[in-house]
Amino acid sequence: MADSMITVFERPHSLKPVPSHFCSGCHHGTVHRLVAEALDQLELQQQTIGIASVGCSVLLYEYFDIDVVEAPHGRAPAVATGVKRVHPDSIVFTYQGDGDLAAIGTAEIIHAANRGEHLTVIFVNNTTYGMTGGQMAPTSLGGQVTTTTPYGRDLETDGNPIRMAELLALLDGTHFSARVSVDAPRRVAQAGKVIHKAFEMQKNRAGFAFVEVLAACPTNWGLSALDANERISQEMMPCFPLGTFKDLSGAQG
């Protein structure tokens, strides 16, 4: 009865039909999908410009069927500012990892938020530098063993895990800041709603929207995919609580 079949699930149109290079258990594919679904649902694919950053997510343009500019390490919010100021009617988003956004690009993200740039920022926090091979990230947890903290991250000398969603929520230019996770099905669904909202706000010209996504890097953590998911809820969430830290969407007309 083929003619009575209905499509209940399909690949988002904003993604290209290609296999990804991500490691098994990596959550970049999940987050890519959530972003693509939001673009599809909001019918934004044709007017969206993505800003790829340096790290595992640099190959954004291999997967998203949209216009993309590749930014230098950490500079995606500045590049996005330039693009958005030229094309204020387009939808511009950055997709950045924790080293990119919270270390080398700290100035760019804070000032883009502070200016209230009409951007959507997807921040993937997996507490490590993935592409370079598992070095300490600004979000690495206390005691976390990485290739550059072989004795564990020492909070006295290596600094503390930085909470970007809370930090950016303090800025007057930030209109929305939230932290979600993609470690379990119900949280993936919730993350999808939040990401959708962050794009919807830009569509409504509501200002700077920031979504931090807790994600796994099983390869560099040295864990199986399932154990990596477990680490997100057991170890990361106590340090990086989920929630919405600022939401001015109701305040917008």
Binding site: P72, R75, R85
Partner: peptide
């Protein structure tokens, strides 16, 4: 047009990069 005083020269040149990628003289 747009004039923007950036937070640093690093940011400024990357805004230039973005605007140029977007197709305008900058």
């Amino acid at each position: 047009g747009t004039f923007l005083q950036a937070e640093s020269e690093v940011a400024a040149i990357n805004m230039v990069l973005g605007a140029s990628a977007a197709g305008v003289r900058v």
